[in-house]
Design a protein around this nucleic acid. Structure first.
Length: 308
DNA sequence: ACACCGTTATTT
DNA sequence: AAATAACGGTGT
């Protein structure tokens, strides 16, 4: 909650948060941080965050999370401000962790996506992250954490549906989606299937229900057994996702040559989700990628009030 | 390179 | 104090 969009990205949010303005809601309706935050420079980030030892972050362009306020990078201990070569001063630098506070919108999208898809392919994550204006890494992490959370939840609910062998009205629903979130629209009310509920999911046993039943607390499906990596690669590639389908359902999408699954560039105008949605409201000139369109169609109506 | 999972640290 | 974003170690 709160997500203080007010907090100037540049200054320590925590500081601001603590010292005053506990006002949780009255946020500027600011489309979840419409401000394009100067945020910190990469230098800053790497400096304070000690730069994730992530090898891959190289090719997976890690855009430094644009919206979604990220925690400060300021109060580094002391004596270090001079800090000319970060290479050397390894000593007592406590390395403050930067924690991003996702916006409600971002969370909604993430959660909803998670509900129908526990694992995303690399590409999907990239797309999603791009759309949400988050890092690939952030999305990846989020999904990982979410899986763990889900797992925990399953365990605790395990007893509940434990013995409803496999017929039960499906275990209690995982508290995934946002309250007034119109997840109804998500699943094609019109046969326009969102990409992630496409055939791949439909006919398989992987709808949310059966997934839940799957209770994989035993190692049933997890990566070790199945090797998600390979599976992902083979199953979730562009061809799979964009079979031929993008010509049909959507009005102004027919024209799109719809390339496979592009690197999902900044096809979205500068900004973030809400901006895109806003724009997309009347003209779809920016939605030149299936992903954007899809997301729009799926989420446009379901934004949290506070985000708009 | 990625998933899992325990841990750490921040945010509320 | 709880929730959770991010990290680090480990296994494949």
């Amino acid at each position: 909650m709160s997500v203080d969009p007010d907090c100037p990205p540049t200054l320590s949010c925590s500081e601001a948060a603590e010292s005053g303005d506990p006002s949780p809601k009255p946020e500027v309706p600011g489309p979840a941080e419409t401000y394009d935050s100067p945020q910190m420079t990469e230098a800053d980030v790497s400096l304070c965050e000690a730069a994730s030892p992530f090898p891959s972050s190289g090719d997976l362009h890690v855009q430094e999370t644009p919206d979604s306020s990220t925690s400060p990078c300021v109060p580094l201990p002391d004596s270090l401000e001079a800090l000319p070569k970060k290479g050397e001063v390894k000593v007592r630098m406590k390395k403050q962790k930067v924690r991003t506070v996702f916006t409600q919108t971002q969370l909604c999208v993430l959660k909803d996506r998670f509900q129908r898809q526990k694992y995303l392919s690399l590409q999907q994550m990239q797309e999603l992250s791009s759309f949400l204006n988050l890092n690939y890494k952030q999305v990846k992490t989020w999904f990982q954490n979410q899986r763990m959370k889900y797992k925990r939840w399953q365990k605790s609910n395990w007893q509940n549906s434990a013995d409803a062998p496999q017929k039960g009205p499906a275990p209690v629903e995982y508290p995934g989606t946002c309250s007034n979130y119109a997840q109804g629209n998500l699943v094609n009310t019109s046969g326009n299937l969102p990409m992630w509920s496409n055939h791949t999911w439909n006919n398989s046993a992987w709808n949310t229900q059966s997934w839940a039943n799957h209770s994989w607390n035993t190692q049933t499906w997890n990566s070790q057994t199945c090797n998600m990596q390979t599976w992902n690669a083979q199953t979730w590639n562009a061809q799979t996702w964009y079979p031929q389908g993008w010509n049909s359902p959507y009005p102004s999408c027919g024209e799109e040559p719809l390339q496979p699954c592009l690197p999902f560039p900044q096809s979205l105008p500068a900004n973030d989700l809400e901006a895109s949605l806003e724009v997309a409201g009347d003209s779809q000139k920016y939605l030149n990628s299936p992903q954007a369109l899809d997301l729009f169609l799926n989420y446009a109506m379901s934004l949290q009030p506070e985000d708009l």
